[in-house]
């Protein structure tokens, strides 16, 4: 967490979520919204465009999260965008998730998959990672169609790649 500003916002978001009750739900909703920002450049540029009126940008957030997320999550996103930090929102959320997991003595395992994991699969994957690395992790799923199939897990700097894309790449390399 190199940027003090990102760390400050992450700490603030975590404090608000914790004060409002179940922070894990807020963390999960913020995490999914951050992934949507990463995958949708138009959405990210719209929220970061200070040329647009703030009410317009807040209305976009309300339209996207109003019926799908908690009021706390919508309010936190609106607060960050209103502060003019929409471009840093994904990093802030990542830091906030890390902060929440750390508060529960866990590590975030970012799992990229072409399809969403069931709760059972998430629990079994967390257990498997624990078995393999000895670390207690919280699984955060990122839907990534480029994976094609299988799963890519990132725990800090460690990557466990079991995707179909990797196997195709290995096959491509073997042709060379």
């Amino acid at each position: 967490m190199a940027d003090p500003r990102v760390a400050g916002y992450a700490e603030a978001l975590f404090a608000v979520a914790a004060a409002e009750g179940d922070s894990s739900v807020v963390e999960d909703e913020l995490f999914r919204f951050a992934q949507a920002l990463r995958s949708d450049d138009d959405l990210g540029s719209t929220l970061a465009d200070t040329g647009l009126p703030l009410a317009r940008r807040l209305q976009v957030i309300e339209d996207l999260l109003g019926s799908r997320a908690s009021a706390v999550t919508t309010a936190l996103v609106s607060m960050v965008v209103g502060a003019g930090r929409a471009a840093e929102l994904p990093a802030i959320v990542d830091a906030m998730v890390e902060r929440g997991a750390a508060s529960r003595n866990k590590t975030v395992a970012t799992v990229r998959s072409a399809v969403d994991l069931t709760a059972d699969q998430s629990e079994r994957l967390a257990a498997a990672i624990n078995t393999r690395t000895g670390r207690d992790v919280e699984v955060r799923v990122v839907i990534d169609p480029s994976v094609l199939g299988g799963v890519v897990t990132e725990i800090g700097d460690d990557i466990i790649d079991g995707s179909v894309r990797r196997r195709l790449n290995q096959l491509r390399e073997s042709f060379r």
């Binding site: 072409a114 399809v115 199939g149």
Partner: peptide, 13 residues
């Protein structure tokens, strides 16, 4: 996809 994820979990474990 489900089988691939299960297989991955088993492999990691």
């Amino acid at each position: 996809q489900g089988r691939l994820i299960d297989a991955y979990i088993d492999e990691v474990a």
